[in-house]
Amino acid sequence: MWYVIQTIGGREQHALNLIAKLVDTVVIQELFIPRCEIMKRIGGVWVKRADVMLPGYVFVVTDDPAKLESELRKNVPLFTKILRNNDTFAPLDKEEIAFINAFAKPGTRVVELSIGVIEGDKVVILNGPLLGQTGHIKKIDRHKRLAYLNMTIMGRQKAIKLGLEIVRKQT
């Protein structure tokens, strides 16, 4: 089952490193932070970089969330908490897992940059993970080269950003 560990925003990689180092590896099958490739302007030059897709969250695949929670409390000196519904651990449902798997490649868990064009008032994705997913796009920021999508995680809507390079606009 997939679970979400909440941690301090901006400290996801540090939390992941501590968990990987200090928690019994038998408990964890996979530990990752979903990332997305985005274009960032640094010093006047556009540079491709991987950014955290869901700030404040680390994902874990485990069959024993109670033991994992115990190990987190005992061994990890950083705020880490498995998300729950009331008093029970809340795994991600199949749709949420499918959404993440549809965009982020297993192994790297990085959503690649998509390439698209604007034809009239429509966005046409030429390649990348957003190909065939234009119905999920809620907003496009051409200047920052981002597409915003809504994702349901733990029963709540969460806005996520993915990299989208618009190579041309036709009227």
Rank of each mutant, 00 (worst) to 15 (best):
D24G: 03
M39N: 02
N17R: 02
W2L: 15
K21E: 12
G44H: 02
I42F: 03
G9S: 04
V27W: 00
F32T: 03
V27R: 01
T7L: 07
I8Y: 13
H14W: 06
L31T: 14
A15S: 12
E30P: 03
L18H: 02
G43N: 12
E12F: 14
L22Q: 04
Q6W: 12
K21M: 11
Q13A: 08
L22D: 00
V27G: 00
A20W: 10
N17V: 02
I42W: 05
F32K: 04
C36I: 10
D24Y: 01
Q6I: 13
Q6V: 11
G10M: 10
L31K: 06
E30S: 12
L16D: 14
L18N: 00
Q6M: 14
L16K: 09
A20H: 07
K40R: 14
K21I: 09
E12A: 14
M39Q: 04
T7Y: 01
I19V: 07
E37M: 14
V45E: 06
A15F: 07
I38V: 10
Y3P: 12
E37I: 05
L16Q: 15
C36W: 08
L18F: 02
G10R: 08
G43M: 01
R35D: 09
G44V: 05
T25E: 02
R35P: 10
R11Q: 07
V23N: 01
I19R: 00
G44N: 08
D24A: 06
R41L: 06
K21D: 15
I42P: 01
M39W: 06
P34K: 12
I19C: 05
I38Y: 04
R41S: 09
R41G: 04
R11M: 14
E37T: 14
T7I: 06
L18V: 02
A15I: 10
E12T: 13
A15K: 06
W2A: 09
A15Y: 05
V4M: 15
V4E: 05
A20Y: 13
R11H: 03
L22N: 02
G10P: 11
H14M: 06
V45I: 09
G10D: 14
I5F: 15
L31F: 15
Y3A: 10
G9W: 00
R35I: 09
H14F: 04
I19S: 00
G9M: 03
K21G: 08
V23Q: 04
Q29L: 01
I38P: 02
E12S: 15
D24M: 10
I8N: 08
I19E: 01
R11D: 08
T25S: 07
L31C: 09
G10Q: 14
